[in-house]
Amino acid sequence: MTAFLHQLGLDPAFLKSAFEWSLLSLFLACLVHSFWVHGPHRTVREFVAGFFLTAFCESTGVLSGAYIYPGFTFYIFATPVANPASWIATVYIIIEVTNRIVYRDKALRTYEADGFRMRKENFTLFGGSLVKTLLVLALLDAVFALAVDIILDPLATIYNWWVWVPCSPGVTDIGPGVVEPYNFTRQVFMTTPQTWIGDFFARFFPNGNRYPTRVLGIPLINFIAWLVFVFVFTFQFRFVEFRETWGEWKKTAVLWALVLLDVPVMALALIIPNL
């Protein structure tokens, strides 16, 4: 199969570019769709919050030594632009899929472009409990996203889209010679950049052997982090969108403030545990 793909011109460098461009295209498709059906306020609020939450937290993960993204074309901080872009696009998709699965065709009539205005009494479950409703919806979002990541992360290791820190004594980051330039030709971000962030996190792994519990070859903490990230973000986003009396500017200010709070809290809470 691999040899056949190479004969068709799908060589390693092409596959890496195809991955990056596919994710950027996915982001653009979702962004345009959101502008179309939800309008500029909600689109900017959701996509900016999700993009920067992921960009900051993923970059902290890279600088902490947990993993690197070698060989991409476009970077923001220490992360390929495609990474936070595709994360918020995936969340955008999953939120709406969850809504349709839970509310059936009632969820079709929720576009601002159709004149929809939120009336939370129409969408709360469990006898009107907003918190329980948000918890269930956010949990479904997180589980659906986790299901994707359980397949995506092993594929990322196979295709060298990103590389996890090896679990060896004394190893707390990715040093020279660890990354084989398989599937890409641009040799950038081949090792963990040396910064004070790496020094700060290294103290939590004094013996190395970082993230010893691996599932399908991937650190267990990765799957926990993915679940928590999606759960927290979609809970906060849905909470803000359910505020029917809040204006657009207030919703945006609150969501962005929550994201600013999320970045240090989640980065510390999800990088340090050496599971």
């Binding site: 498709a29 092993p154 070859g217 991937i218």
Partner: peptide
């Protein structure tokens, strides 16, 4: 569009799994 993109995402994962080279799958150690 959401479910179309979700299906596209799943199809991409499915094909990438089929096309994964054996020596790279062994990198997982699973």
């Amino acid at each position: 569009l959401h479910v179309i993109l979700y299906l596209y995402f799943w199809f991409g994962l499915f094909v990438c799994g089929l096309a994964a080279p054996r020596h790279r799958v062994e990198e997982l150690g699973s």
